[in-house]
Design a binder for these strands. Sequence first.
DNA 1: CATGAATGAGGTTTCATTCAT
DNA 2: TATGAATGAAACCTCATTCAT
Lengths: 209, 209, 209, 209
Amino acid sequence: MPASSPAALRPRRNPSQSRSMVTVDAIFQACIQVLLKEGMHRLTTTRVAERAGVSVGTLYQYYPNKQALLYAVLERHLNGVATAVETAALRAHHKPLETMVRAIVEAFVTAKIESIDEARALYGIASELACAELVTAASMKVGTALGAMLVTAPDARFKDIVVTSYMFATAMVGPTKAVLEEQAPPKLMRVLREQLTSLCLGYLQRESV
Amino acid sequence: MPASSPAALRPRRNPSQSRSMVTVDAIFQACIQVLLKEGMHRLTTTRVAERAGVSVGTLYQYYPNKQALLYAVLERHLNGVATAVETAALRAHHKPLETMVRAIVEAFVTAKIESIDEARALYGIASELACAELVTAASMKVGTALGAMLVTAPDARFKDIVVTSYMFATAMVGPTKAVLEEQAPPKLMRVLREQLTSLCLGYLQRESV
Amino acid sequence: MPASSPAALRPRRNPSQSRSMVTVDAIFQACIQVLLKEGMHRLTTTRVAERAGVSVGTLYQYYPNKQALLYAVLERHLNGVATAVETAALRAHHKPLETMVRAIVEAFVTAKIESIDEARALYGIASELACAELVTAASMKVGTALGAMLVTAPDARFKDIVVTSYMFATAMVGPTKAVLEEQAPPKLMRVLREQLTSLCLGYLQRESV
Amino acid sequence: MPASSPAALRPRRNPSQSRSMVTVDAIFQACIQVLLKEGMHRLTTTRVAERAGVSVGTLYQYYPNKQALLYAVLERHLNGVATAVETAALRAHHKPLETMVRAIVEAFVTAKIESIDEARALYGIASELACAELVTAASMKVGTALGAMLVTAPDARFKDIVVTSYMFATAMVGPTKAVLEEQAPPKLMRVLREQLTSLCLGYLQRESV
DNA sequence: CATGAATGAGGTTTCATTCAT
DNA sequence: TATGAATGAAACCTCATTCAT
C-alpha cells in the first residue's frame, strides 16, 4: 500500500462528494488522453485542465503540482497491473508449474493490454521525480506474490525463491513493452502470451532443483 | 546505420578536423554527465555547453537543436550495445546453443554495465520525440544478428526465427534494467549473468524443434 | 472616526447581532495571526477564513475584498494607539511639561508593546493601497491631541504648536519601530521609555520660548 | 560591506562589459520608476523589464529572482544614505556637539531628499523577505559612525554611547518619513532640518554627563 | 568560427472572488 | 446565511534558440 509517499506528491483531497469525484476523474482521464495524443513533452497542466473541461485552478485543488498528478496516474496503473498479477497468483497456488505460468502471463498481458493506452503512455514517465519508489513498490508486490505462489508448486522447488520470482516478474516486461510500443515484428503481438509462457516456463523449469 | 532519420535531428556536420572532434566529444560527454548529475529535467543546452567548456553558440554549431543532441547520444549508446551483441553473435556462429547464449548475455550485460552511466541516464529518454525509430533500429540490428547466429546452431532448430530471436533480445532487457535502476534485490546484481543465461537458454531450448 | 474612506474598503455591515460579531471578530483575529505566522505575502483570504473557522464565502459577507479586511485591521490598530495617546494627553492637561512627556511616552510605548504582535505585523502594510489616509488620520488625531495638551503646559509656551506637536508625535516612531523589529541593540529595549522621554523632553524644552 | 547576504538574493553576475552595464542599470532604474508610478503591489518583473526596454529573460540573467532585484535596489539606497551620514560624521570629528548634529542632520536629510524618489518608493519594502538584515546593517553602520564621532566631541561626554548614538540615528527617521510621505503638515517640509537639529541636539545635551 | 547577451513564448502555480447548492 | 468548488487572470520564472560582435 502506498502508505508512504512524498508529501508533496500526495493529492490535496480525497473527494467524497459526487461533484468532486466527477471532476477529479475527468482530470485523471484527461491526463492520460493528453499523454497519449500529445506525448509527455506536451503534457502541460493547462492542457490537461482544458481537455478535462475544467480550469487550471480546479486541477490544482486536487493535485498540488504536476508531478503529483503524474504520480497518481502512474500509481493507479502500476497498482492495477500488480493487483491483477497478485490475484492470479493467489488463485494459482498449489497448481502445477505450467498452469501457474500460464495464469500469470495471462493476467500480466491482459492487464497491460486492457489498459494499453495507459501503459503506452506511462512507459517513460519513470524517468521523472521519485517514481522509482512506485516502480519498486509494484515490483515487490508482484515479486512477493509470485514467490508465495511458486513455493506451493507441487512439481517444482526453487533454491533462491527471491531471485527467481524477481526474474520471473521482470522477464515479462521487455517483450511486452516492445510489443506495446510497436517496435516488435507484428506477428509477435499475436503470439505474445504463448511466447512469454515459454520464456518463463523454460526458465523456471531450469531453476527447479 | 540509421539511414532514415528526421533531417532536423541530424548533426550539422560530421567533423573531421581534429579541433572539431575534440569539441563535439566534449559536448557529448558533458551531455551525459549533466543527464546523470542533474537529471533529464535539468538538462539544458546552456548547462551542457557550460560543462563542456564551450559556449551555447558553439553547441548549436554542431547540433541544430537539443533533440539532435539527445538523439546522437542515444544513438551512440544503442549502437554501442547493439554492435557489441552483434560482434559476439558473429563470433558465436556454429557454436552450440548454450555457448551462444552465454556469449550474448555476456556481451549484453558487459556493454550495459560498462556504459552503466549512459544506460541509466538514457532509459527514459526514449519517451521523447522520434526516438522510437532508434530503439527499433537497434532492436532490429540485434534481432537480425541473433537470428543469423541461431540458424547456425548445430544443436537447435527454430520454427519462427524472427519471433524467437526478438524474444531472445528483449527478454534480457527487463531484468537488466531493474538491476541498473537498483530496484532489484541486491543479490540479483551478482548473479545477473547466470540468471539471464538460464532465462534465455531455457526459452530457446523449449522453442527448438 | 474615519468619516471618509473609499467605499470599496468599507466593511459590508456593522454587525450588531451577536453571532455576527463573534464571526467578524474571529476573522479579525485570524487575520492578525496569519500575518504573524505566515507573513504578508502568505496572507490569503482562504487562509484567514480557514484559521477563523469559517468559509471564504462567509469572510466575503463581512468584507467586500481583501483590502477592506486589511484596512479594518490597520484602522483598529492605529485607532487603538491614537486613542491611548489621546486619552493620556487629555489626562495630562495642565501638568508640567515633563509629566506630560512621561505620560505620552508611557501611553505610546505601552500601546505599541501591548499590541506588539499587531504592530510588528502591520508595519509594512501601509505600503499597500490607500492606507496612507489612515496613517495620516491617526497622526493628525495624535498631533491634535498633543497640541491641545501642550498649550496647557504651565511651564512652557511654543511658537508653532502644529509643527512642534507633529515632531513630538513622529519622533517616537523611529526608535520604537527599531526596537520592535529587533534591529536595535538589545539594551535599548529596556531603556526605551527613558530614552524616548529624554528625546522628546529635550526637544520640547528647546522649542519652548 | 554586505559580504554576507543570502545566496538566493545575490545578483547573478557583476557585469563588466559595457553593454551589460547599460542593461543592468536600465533594469535598476526601471525598477525604481515602476515602484514610484505603479506602487509595490504592481511591481512585476515583466513590467520592470518592459519599462527597462528589455525582455524578462534578460532581467533574469542579472537577478535570479524578483526579491534579488528589490534587495539590490534597497541595498544601494540604504548604502547611499548610510555612507553619506558616515562621511559627514567623519568630517565632524572633534567639532562641538551642535556642529556635529547640524552636519549629520544635513547629510541625512539631503541624502533622503536627493534620492527622494527612491526613498519614497522603498519605504515599505522592508516588510518583504530578508530585508531586515539590510536595514540592520545600515543602522549599525550609521550607529557606529555616529558613536565614533560623538566620543570626540570636546563639549560632551556620554554614558552609554551605543544606546545614545542609536537613538540619534533612529530619531531622525520618523519625522523624515512623515514628510516624504506627505503626511506631515506642509510647513514641516521647510523647517525639517531645523527641527531635526533641535530634536537631536536637545536629546544629546540632556544625555551628556 | 566562437561567444554569450538577448529574446519571448510558454510553463507552473497562486489566489481574490463568485455563485450554485 | 453559509459553504467551498470552480474560475481564470496574472504572477514568476525557464530555456531553446538567435545573432551582433
